[in-house]
Design a protein around this nucleic acid. Structure first.
Lengths: 244, 244
DNA sequence: CCTCGAACTTAACGCAGGTTAATGCGGACG
DNA sequence: CGTCCGCATTAACCTGCGTTAAGTTCGAGG
């Protein structure tokens, strides 16, 4: 165990996409939090099949949630960003059905699964927030299903980049020359059900259309409105979300 | 409003896939439930974009949850079975992001969205159950994403039919000549991201392999183990689930 | 018994995207 | 400054699935 940030000084609170903690919430979270961990790129934070005793909130860094099929094929279910809560599945259903793998260095808060029930019993508002997060997650998964089921490669890539852009932007990660993309084409491909080669072709095509600039881990969008339109997404700002 | 079944005599309780109510739960559910409705095939129970004040539990009958894209394409996100809880998205996020459409006659219990918070405040165990259901749902959506992203048409069809079979079987709907399938090929196709034509071809192929018999709304599986293997699914029985 | 329509089936053809493989490029390290 | 390696790109070829369109089959209603 390493030095642990106090919840009162939670770095996530500086990002305006998150609802501020009330003093009681800080007190509760302080007691709920049992540690902190650093994860290196490529490391597996939660493994499919594992019965993890731990739950996490991402403080910093990025990851993928992915499912491994029997024969080795891999599907990235979605991307993980700071503020995301991890491990609810194992926490509630007993066993993780997917893995979480860091794509950048990460820092995470640690909670104990055994205390999840206390949260429901003693802090209904926190439990409600947790369910809120689960409902939002469910919505995004539904959108992903619609994308994989109905959209062609161009639309898919546009959609994924638009969603990632939106999330990074809500986190305040945008600079004049765009954002640092924490994922590689390989992960995009696995998330969209496309081959790496075709993903590259498709990205090139979007580049040729002047819809994006993506080089060496930096992404920029010369004309966000057009890209969002192609992705079938409205351009609204994301709602603030609670933090567990 | 029509005549309303008392929760103490809830017909779902007869099905062994559901955890039995405790006496207090019955008392609570009785107060929580505000009505009952009958829905005809084809009717829309919840519409995408709507801010429904109502939540439902399915007592009888089947439905699809689907997302409509801007240009009219439709993706069936999943299938709805008796015991499923509907409307949590609108209940928690404010707006439905998908529609729920009956594919058979249905009967549903009605609850008020405004009282959802009471449930969290007063009945932490019920709130926990609700979150449990959400977590299981999330797991299935993840599996669907993996299927659409990685599996070919044959595997997809096998997967969908195996999952539906499993659920119907848990509901006790299996007879010696199989189950009554409440969905048509059209809906399967929309759920799997395949065209109707190719879905038909693929079903024929599975039929030719002796893996299934599906005629006029009845499905049978001569060799479930082989079909499940093809679908990449273990053949275990589903866990009992709570009922809201 | 006949007609009609919904659901499904079958066949022919074309294309989006998979696969394989060769090539380019920049960053890390000696 | 040169080599290596991981990642991205490009090209050539192939196939699974979409599309269109012409049947079937069966049940409902006259």
């Amino acid at each position: 165990m390493m030095q642990m940030t106090d919840c009162a000084a939670c770095p996530l609170q500086k990002r305006r996409m998150f609802l501020p903690f009330t003093p009681e919430e800080i007190a509760f979270m302080r007691a709920f939090k049992t540690g902190e961990a650093v994860v290196r790129p490529g490391e597996t934070l939660l493994a499919q099949g594992e019965r993890s005793e731990r739950l996490y909130t991402v403080l910093e860094g990025f990851a993928t949630r992915s499912i491994q099929l029997e024969d080795g094929r891999r599907q990235v279910v979605n991307f993980v960003f700071p503020g995301d809560f991890l491990g609810l599945q194992a926490g509630i259903m007993g066993e993780m059905r997917h893995s979480v793998q860091a794509t950048t260095p990460m820092r995470v808060c640690i909670f104990q699964r055994s205390r999840l029930w206390d949260l429901f019993r003693d802090k209904p508002d926190r439990a409600y927030d947790l369910t809120w997060l689960a409902a939002v997650e469910e919505h995004f998964l539904g959108e992903t299903i619609a994308t994989l089921g109905q959209r062609d490669a161009t639309e898919r890539v546009a959609w994924a980049l638009a969603r990632i852009w939106q999330r990074l932007s809500a986190l305040g990660e945008i600079t004049p020359d765009g954002v640092a993309l924490p994922f590689r084409q390989h992960e995009l491909a696995d998330a969209l059900g496309l081959s790496k080669v075709h993903t590259s072709r498709t990205v090139s095509q979007l580049r040729a259309l002047g819809l994006l600039v993506w080089r060496r881990g930096r992404l920029n969008m010369p004309d966000p409105a057009r890209l969002f339109a192609l992705a079938g997404l409205p351009m609204e700002r994301e709602e603030q979300r609670p933090l567990i």
